[in-house]
Amino acid sequence: ENVVSAPMPGKVLRVLVRVGDRVRVGQGLLVLEAMKMENEIPSPRDGVVKRILVKEGEIVDTGQPLIELG
């Protein structure tokens, strides 16, 4: 699984990683606000951040690609 998608609609509050960062399974990639709750979106696997597909403040839909892992 190379693309991390939004599990719910919401607003991207914070991106916690940068392109080139090594991440571990379960590590927070970004914080999504949904229904006034902050939800940290975890990495599904170990890898390297290849691309960040959203910006802070952006509104996303369920299933929208957020981050690509390499």
Rank of each mutant, 00 (worst) to 15 (best):
V49P: 05
R24P: 11
E40F: 13
L53V: 02
K36I: 06
L13Y: 08
G63H: 13
L13P: 09
L16W: 04
N2F: 02
E38C: 01
R22T: 14
P7C: 01
R22M: 14
G26C: 01
V31Q: 03
L66F: 02
L30D: 00
V31R: 09
G70A: 07
G70N: 10
V17K: 04
K50S: 14
M8W: 15
V15L: 13
L29P: 00
V48A: 08
R14A: 08
E38G: 10
K50H: 12
Q27I: 05
E68A: 00
P7H: 09
R22N: 15
I67L: 11
K36W: 07
G70S: 06
V23Q: 11
K11N: 08
D46K: 02
V3Y: 02
V25I: 09
G28N: 06
V19Y: 04
E68R: 00
V49G: 03
V4Q: 08
M37F: 12
L66V: 04
G10A: 15
G70F: 13
G57A: 07
E1T: 01
L69V: 15
K11S: 14
E38A: 07
V12K: 00
G28A: 13
N2H: 04
G57D: 08
A6E: 03
V60A: 12
P9W: 04
E68V: 02
G63Y: 07
T62N: 06
G63A: 10
K55L: 15
R14N: 11
E68D: 02
D21W: 01
L29S: 07
E68H: 00
G20D: 14
R45Y: 15
L66C: 01
K55D: 11
S5F: 05
V54Q: 08
A34D: 09
E40I: 09
V4G: 14
I67D: 00
V12S: 13
E38K: 07
M8P: 02
L13D: 06
V17S: 09
G20P: 02
I52R: 03
P42Y: 13
R14L: 08
R24I: 04
I52K: 06
D46I: 08
S43M: 15
T62S: 04
E33M: 06
I41G: 02
Q64P: 05
G47P: 00
R22H: 04
G57F: 03
L66N: 04
E68N: 00
P65C: 01
V31L: 13
P44V: 13
L66T: 09
E58C: 01
P65V: 06
V49E: 00
V49R: 00
R24L: 12
N2I: 03
R45V: 15
E40V: 09
S5G: 12
D61V: 08
V4A: 13
V54L: 10
E68G: 00
I41T: 09
G63E: 11
E56K: 02
Q64R: 05
P42W: 13
R24S: 14
V3P: 11
V4M: 11
G57Q: 10
I41K: 04
L69N: 04
P42A: 06
G47R: 02
P7M: 13
I67F: 05
V19T: 04
L53W: 08
E58Y: 06
Q27W: 02
G26L: 15
K55I: 08
G26E: 11
P9G: 03
R24E: 06
L16V: 03
A6P: 15
V17Y: 15
R14D: 06
V48M: 08
K55R: 02
M37C: 01
E56F: 03
L66H: 01
M37A: 06
E68I: 02
L16T: 08
V17L: 06
E58D: 13
R18C: 01
E40W: 04
P65G: 06
K11P: 11
G57N: 12
S43K: 00
G47H: 01
D46A: 03
M37K: 04
V48P: 06
E56M: 03
Q27H: 02
R24T: 10
Q64I: 09
L13V: 06
E1C: 01
V54Y: 06
E68W: 01
G10L: 14
P65D: 14
L29M: 10
K55E: 14
I41H: 09
P42E: 07
G47V: 08
G20N: 05
T62I: 13
G26W: 11
V23C: 01
M35P: 06
A34E: 03
V4T: 13
L29G: 04
L66A: 03
V19P: 04
P42D: 05
M37V: 08
V15R: 02
I41Q: 12
M8D: 10
L13I: 08
R45C: 01
E68S: 00
I52F: 13
G57T: 07
K11R: 08
Q64G: 15
D21V: 03
P44H: 15
P9A: 04
R18T: 04
L66K: 00
K36Q: 06
N39Y: 10
V60I: 05
V17F: 12
V19W: 04
E1H: 00
R51W: 12
E68C: 01
N2Q: 02
A6D: 09
D46N: 08
V3L: 04
G10Q: 15
V4E: 13
L32T: 09
Q64V: 11
T62Q: 13
V23G: 04
V19I: 08
D61F: 08
P42L: 09
V54H: 07
D61L: 13
M8E: 09
V19F: 06
V48F: 03
L53M: 09
V4R: 05
L13F: 12
E58M: 05
R22V: 06
N2D: 15
I59G: 03
D61C: 01
P65H: 08
S43D: 02
L16R: 09
D61S: 07
R22Y: 02
G20R: 11
S43Y: 05
R14P: 12
E38V: 07
K11T: 14
V17R: 03
V31C: 01
L16P: 13
D21F: 01
L53R: 03
K11G: 09
S5C: 01
V19L: 07
L69A: 15
G63L: 12
I67Q: 12
G63R: 03
I67E: 08
A6C: 00
V3G: 15
P44T: 15
G57K: 11
P9S: 09
R18P: 08
D61R: 04
G10M: 15
M35E: 05
E58G: 05
G47S: 08
D21H: 00
I52E: 12
G70W: 15
M35G: 04
I52C: 01
P44M: 15
A6R: 04
G70V: 11
A34S: 10
V15D: 08
N2K: 03
Q27A: 04
V48I: 12
R45F: 15
N2Y: 03
S43H: 03
V12P: 01
P44Q: 15
R51S: 14
I41D: 00
M35D: 03
R24V: 05
V15E: 03
M35V: 04
D21R: 02
P7S: 11
S43V: 09
V23Y: 13
V60G: 07
V54K: 04
K50Y: 14
V3N: 14
R45L: 15
V12F: 05
K36F: 05
G20F: 01
E1W: 00
P44I: 14
T62R: 03
L30P: 00
L69F: 14
E40H: 06
N39H: 03
L32A: 07
N2P: 03
V54P: 05
A6Y: 14
I67C: 00
V3S: 14
N39P: 10
I52Y: 06
S5N: 13
N39I: 08
G28C: 01
R24D: 08
G57L: 08
T62Y: 08
G28D: 11
E56N: 02
D21A: 04
P9Q: 13
E40D: 09
G70T: 06
V4L: 13
M37R: 06
T62V: 05
A34M: 06
G26D: 12
G28F: 05
L32F: 13
K50D: 15
V19Q: 10
K55A: 08
G57Y: 12
M8Q: 03
I59P: 10
L53S: 14
G28I: 12
G63D: 15
K55W: 08
L53P: 11
V49N: 07
S5H: 09
R51P: 11
V15F: 08
P42I: 14
T62W: 10
D46M: 04
V15A: 13
Q27S: 10
S43E: 00
L53F: 12
L29D: 00
E38M: 07
M8F: 05
E56D: 12
R45P: 14
G57I: 07
L32Y: 12
L30V: 09
N39T: 09
E56R: 04
R45S: 15
L13N: 10
V17H: 08
S43G: 07
L53D: 09
I52M: 07
V23M: 11
M35H: 11
M35N: 04
E38S: 13
D61Y: 09
G26R: 07
I41L: 05
V54S: 07
G47M: 03
L69I: 13
R22K: 14
N2R: 00
I41W: 10
S43C: 00
G47W: 03
Q27R: 02
S43T: 04
E68Q: 01
R24G: 08
R45T: 15
G10Y: 14
E1G: 00
R18Y: 03
Q27T: 03
L16H: 07
L13Q: 09
L66Q: 03
E33T: 10
R45D: 15
V60H: 08
V25F: 15
K55M: 04
G47T: 14
L30W: 06
R14W: 13
P7W: 09
V15G: 10
G63I: 07
L53G: 15
I41P: 08
L32M: 13
V19E: 15
